[in-house]
Design a binder for these strands. Structure first.
Lengths: 172, 172
DNA sequence: CGCATTAACTTAACATGTTAAGTATCTCCG
DNA sequence: CGGAGATACTTAACATGTTAAGTTAATGCG
């Protein structure tokens, strides 16, 4: 463990604290960021071994639960922005993990689905992933985990109503 | 091509549900991601108006609370990886929002501090930022907010002990 | 000393986040 | 029917996340 922080013999007379704000490390965004990072740190090595990033894994998981989906719907499911999804789909398609075909009824839409290879890859990752999740649940406690998720959902709902800028998302 | 499911809109739809996993939308990483995004969506427009990104703001906030810090310490405070911080500091320095000078005792280290201009910028952003935070607190509830942060901290601690980075987690 | 090792950053390379602009297609109204 | 506007993506441009490699300065040890 790195202990250091012996603090060099710098001057004293602290001229900081010039702008009054809450303690930085206790801000909600930081807490959420740190918690999420702590969780993802558990999964990333395993995903990496299988050549997948976190986002690619999200997409495959989303696709594995359905027949096929339009890009926009997939973006909503995997919580990715359109441009990110567009790039990732291009790569996943090149790796033959997904398949795309334009809808006949509407040439603008493309239906995305997971390929046989994609399913195979998922099957090889899922056990480890589930085991890690189980370990997290065991460490933190199943009950507390459920409570936490409930609170996170509430937070989301309580802020969703006044969502940042354009809140004209129809169809839900 | 043998089709496994009837789909009126398009021809052959690959089968789904081939790999059993938890409901995707209920995974902890997704809950944390969505909650954080809901929160950050409130702040981003204001930061943007002041020409700051979320990470730049984190750095300025961290610097405003102290005299000066080494890059590594600052990275820990602002929860940024070294390379990200390195780039951002370069930009913030070019904009004269921070100042750097190499430590006399150890030429490898550079001490970073916020500049007068940086303080001025912070002072212009802080009120709005605090107001947004207050509104979030009001909507979600101060008590629940404290509870949530407590749980997030617990989660972090319960996972931190087996922190996957250099902690011999290879065979998990 | 001399040199391997370590430490503190920085650069590099690739992937994603975020916003804006572009493209092709579809809808609808006049 | 025809063009304005809406839709569904895709591209582009810039900033950050993430890992690996490079650079320079300090340390340890024979």
């Amino acid at each position: 463990m790195t202990k250091k922080t012996a603090d060099p013999a710098n001057g004293s007379a602290p001229a900081a604290r010039q702008v009054p704000m809450r303690d930085f490390s206790r801000s909600l965004p930081m807490s959420l960021l740190r918690a999420r990072e702590a969780v993802m740190r558990q999964f990333r090595p395993s995903l990496r071994e299988h050549g997948l990033t976190e986002q690619q894994w999200r997409i495959l998981r989303a696709l594995a639960s359905i027949e096929a989906a339009e890009v926009t719907e997939l973006a909503r499911m995997a919580f990715l922005l359109g441009p990110s999804l567009s790039r990732i789909l291009r790569d996943l398609e090149a790796r033959n993990l997904i398949e795309r075909k334009t809808a006949k009824a509407d040439q603008r839409r493309s239906m995305v689905s997971i390929s046989k290879e994609g399913v195979k890859l998922m099957a090889s990752v899922a056990p480890t992933s589930e085991a890690i999740y189980a370990e997290i649940t065991r460490r933190f406690g199943a009950r507390k985990l459920a409570e936490l998720q409930e609170m996170l959902g509430e937070l989301e709902r309580s802020l969703g109503e006044l969502g940042g800028a354009d809140e004209t998302i129809a169809g839900e």
